[in-house]
Design a protein around this nucleic acid. Sequence first.
DNA 1: CTTACTCATGTAAACGATTCCATGGAATCG
DNA 2: CGATTCCATGGAATCGTTTACATGAGTAAG
Lengths: 350, 350
Amino acid sequence: MNAVTIKDVASAAGVSVATASRVLSGHPATSPDSRAKVESAAKELGFMPNAQARSLRSTKTDSIALLISDVRNPYFSDLAHAVEQHARAAGLMTFIGNANEDAAQQDDFLATMLSRRVDGLVIVPQGLNEESNQPSEMMNRVLSSGIPTIFVDRALPSVQVPAITANSAQALDEAVATLQSLGHQNIAFVGGPKHASTALERYSAFETALANNGLHADEALHFVGDFQPASGALAAKWLLENPAKPSAIIVADAPMAIGALRVWRELGVRVGSDLSVITFDEVDAMLIHDPPIATIGHDLSQMGKMAVQALREVMAGQKPEPEELISKFTLRPSVASAKATQVMEGKVRP
Amino acid sequence: MNAVTIKDVASAAGVSVATASRVLSGHPATSPDSRAKVESAAKELGFMPNAQARSLRSTKTDSIALLISDVRNPYFSDLAHAVEQHARAAGLMTFIGNANEDAAQQDDFLATMLSRRVDGLVIVPQGLNEESNQPSEMMNRVLSSGIPTIFVDRALPSVQVPAITANSAQALDEAVATLQSLGHQNIAFVGGPKHASTALERYSAFETALANNGLHADEALHFVGDFQPASGALAAKWLLENPAKPSAIIVADAPMAIGALRVWRELGVRVGSDLSVITFDEVDAMLIHDPPIATIGHDLSQMGKMAVQALREVMAGQKPEPEELISKFTLRPSVASAKATQVMEGKVRP
DNA sequence: CTTACTCATGTAAACGATTCCATGGAATCG
DNA sequence: CGATTCCATGGAATCGTTTACATGAGTAAG
């Protein structure tokens, strides 16, 4: 395999391993002479330092772990890409792990990363355990281990970790105001699972927005999904059968919206005329949709950048403040006036 | 931090480190008695083995690297997910790296992985260097290092590495036959960059399919893109200005299709009536599109599974055969009869 | 009862880097 | 010119595991 070690380099260069090591890791106390000899020997032999030996001794790995729910969710793949690019710029390798919205896989990944002694963790937390209302055991271990950690996108209440989150209050206010001014009275909301802080934030901001615009919240118009496409599909049908006949709907994430849009298309519901749709997460699929879907979203590249920056501050021993990005509402043709919506009865296009 | 080592566990359990190690790594020669003592001590102390020390000595890391172009491309994120799940089932951690269609980033990632001594590599190769017509230096190093490697999705000609690829000949044949039977004579093709083997395979299969169906290939109907959304957008405009007025188009990957569909929508071109569209890669965005887009695609979960399996065979010292998945054509409403296409002149909807 | 063999255990040597410490020569200072 | 400082260097310890080898107890076979 790659049997060439620093020892080989040292003897080829005619110096000790200590000197070779110093040259290769940029230590100042080296003569130009030995620097030249070691460098050329290393290149000659194709020396490639063994990262585990290095970090076993030096206790740093120049790597961080990013734990997300699912790479297949475009929201998270965009976020992952942003984190990776900014970490890379700071000389850090990023390990991406999928929790698949599953606490066991999350813990598994965290355990592996702890074993590998990554220098820091960026986590989209999966939420507290349903029964115990506590973070999982592994999460507690992470938190008590003292390894630099920050949360991104979501936060955990009661856990003191810097978090980079998004605030959608303003955007939802605008969205609801827009719908209201177009004559929509019954606005449905497809939310996320209660273990996700984003789900709570979004629904409560929605309720506030309703109140601000003279509308009243109605639990019968609230569908609790799980942020996955399948539950979006269920929500789509739930909407059509809802006795209140809502004329507009706000969906709390892109995968659920994707699931829902597919069902509506199959059933012939015309988004943007039969039904006004606004969704969270400004991802490609929403923009190529015909009609384009109005979204509430934030800059993921920015979020990734802030996450890496905050993490580096923690790694440097500082205590960064939690930060909030302000989400933006973008009106698009998926939203129309409520009048067009009267046709909802004839939901299946011939 | 996590200062608890196997030494601590051993002394807490009242045995030697050797025994502790044997118990913890499941070595058979251990007594039930010491097994019990060590295990409880380990749990008690929250022992978490240091992966670098372990693999420094044992020369295995139980991890593999997956090099793809870009996680944000849904095709690759699906593939990444599949590889990860199957690797995980085999007890292997997967490191995902983005090349961003950039040889420098590819080499960077490979260097890091080589340093970390991953047990194997699954690579979507970026292609040969434009000038030298050779794999990059780092790629050569990977290949000569003897580290188990397989290619997936793409292959490199002249490089002897087992590859899992897709064969689209049949699917393209069906696709072209379908178009032809609907009266389409001028079928445009938006291909990929020539450094990608998939681009070559797809275009040459397309040419064959034309011939099989009594149509002739025409370079003026071939747009060479780069697999990214922006070049899809260019292709979309190119098509509209093409003097041959093609009535149907086949796009060689999803990101380009996404870029193109967006442009067509903005310009009011009605896909499925003004223009028949077929695209490679069966991803969500194509299915929620209205109308749904006909696709040529293959089972990515299957591809991921085969990749992991082939890699494990290489790791076990075997020499697996290259394998080909057969792509499938799925007809959807984005394809219509050519007659409807006469309206192409009035391309901008009022 | 001896011999041979199995088996759990401990001691110590790896693995491949970094880094502390001692050394000796050159440079600087009074 | 002698004393002090500086600096590049090499030897050796170290990081936390695994594992080759030696040991000694217990067991089965003769």
